[in-house]
């Protein structure tokens, strides 16, 4: 239990700093692609995280990003929405006999299809909310949509890359 909490705290700090200090400064495709990898924290929470904790952690994660990017409420809202969507997605994608608490939401344990569906939907929800609220208007609808979709694809790619890099650490003992 303590090890799990410690791992989650470390991954929270690591992801927020990685996002604020590295990813936010990438200039990909003239600003059309901004990967928000920090949401991996919400995706990677253990299956037996209580729903209220998922929501609160999502909000806190977003608020932490808001401090770095000086955008009060922007990331907090997107992450809260994503945390709520995670609860729904877990229910929709649940295996017949429920989740094994020893398993984690990653490719090794749940398979590529499950992981891509789960992560894809959550990242998409987060990015669509984030990009449209950031623009704060609807007149560039198509270009905002395109930016959100391209960034979501980049985030998904980075999620898989992060999975590949941390595989050994998460292998079942």
């Amino acid at each position: 239990m303590i090890a799990i909490v410690r791992n989650q705290v470390l991954s929270f700090l690591l992801l927020v700093l990685l996002q604020a200090l590295v990813l936010d400064h990438l200039d990909l495709a003239h600003g059309w692609v901004v990967p928000y990898l920090y949401v991996l924290f919400i995706i990677g929470l253990p299956f037996n995280t209580p729903p209220w904790a998922t929501l609160v952690l999502g909000f806190v994660l977003g608020l932490a990003m808001d401090f770095f990017s000086s955008t009060p409420g922007l990331h907090a809202g997107a992450c809260t929405l994503m945390a709520y969507a995670r609860l729904l997605m877990l229910r929709i994608l649940a295996p017949r006999d429920g989740y094994d608490p020893l398993k984690r939401p990653d490719v090794q344990h749940m398979g590529l299809t499950w992981y891509m569906t789960f992560t894809g939907v959550l990242v998409l929800i987060h990015h669509l909310w984030l990009f449209f609220v950031e623009v704060y208007r609807f007149d560039d609808f198509l270009s905002t949509l395109l930016r959100a979709l391209m960034s979501a694809a980049a985030t998904l790619l980075l999620c898989l890359l992060a999975q590949a890099l941390t595989t050994r650490e998460f292998r079942p003992r």
Binding site: W52, L55, V56, F59, P72, G73, A76, G77, Y84, V133
Partner: peptide, 20 residues
């Protein structure tokens, strides 16, 4: 309670957003 918590946190985010 979870839906209410979600609504509360979402409302808080929107208040921050609009104030900002």
């Amino acid at each position: 309670r979870n839906n209410l918590l979600f609504l509360a946190l979402m409302a808080l985010s929107l208040v921050l957003l609009i104030n900002g």
